[in-house]
Design a protein around this nucleic acid. Sequence first.
DNA 1: ATGAGCTTTATAATTATTCTAAATGGATAT
DNA 2: ATATCCATTTAGAATAATTATAAAGCTCAT
Lengths: 143, 143
Amino acid sequence: MDMQLKQFTNAEISDLLVRHDINPTPQRVVVTRVILERCAHLSAEDLFQIIEQMPDRPGVSLATVYNTLGLLAQKGVVREVIADSSKVVYDPNTSAHHHVYNVTTGELFDVDAHLMQVTGMPSLPPGTSLEGVDVIVRVRTPS
Amino acid sequence: MDMQLKQFTNAEISDLLVRHDINPTPQRVVVTRVILERCAHLSAEDLFQIIEQMPDRPGVSLATVYNTLGLLAQKGVVREVIADSSKVVYDPNTSAHHHVYNVTTGELFDVDAHLMQVTGMPSLPPGTSLEGVDVIVRVRTPS
DNA sequence: ATGAGCTTTATAATTATTCTAAATGGATAT
DNA sequence: ATATCCATTTAGAATAATTATAAAGCTCAT
């Protein structure tokens, strides 16, 4: 009952990596293939476990899965999504506002919600209630 | 050169906690006082270290700082901000889109960026370039 | 004083991730 | 073939933030 929406040949994946300026090693090909074929939000650990059970895989270590995903994200093949977090700060400002976060320096600034707004809120999944809406504008200080 | 915008008495903090339905123990009062007076984005560890150096503090353990901040956030005294993250998933969908995250179940859904948009982007801090804009609608499945 | 119940504490455990240093592998020069 | 180079991969250690646990401490009504 696998929901595999799409299948790719190794050659297709290889081409994709090359087009994104990535050396297509066997490990990178299999990681990329799996995340594209599964077409789901997967963590490094998820991917590692899926790949472990594949019959015809190259040896792929967890470290390589992390490295590869980081590389794929950096090159724009996939997107990194910060969902849950185990790194949290607390903000005494409880009024509605959003944040600008400098990923280089770690600085965090508030932006009033009346300046920056979210339009077109989707209807919530059935049986759920709204917990909050977070907007984070991530910026970088180029080296 | 401390930027203390505001000072509170213990009685004021105590009242605030009671109004938010929190039993105002000495530890909770000092944690709350510090985060409100500093008026900055602080992590549990930040607060713990600040409190450690105060002369007239009650004993406050790191675990209590965590517990207290969690409680304050839950009761709406402060707000939890997910900035950096060490829990990441990868999304093969690189088109512009946002997310609905169910904090109870961990489920994550895409929302097309043409459905939900962010208006009024602030001008970026000088010397920074845009890395991305994340919108996460957090929902909960009530127990 | 005693017991109930909440709170705090020290410490261990967990979890996700990153680091490190050695091993591997494939391409190229000899 | 052989040596060499360099990127990549690897196992395992290290780190960092947080959460869990179980014992000890307070407080307050009896």
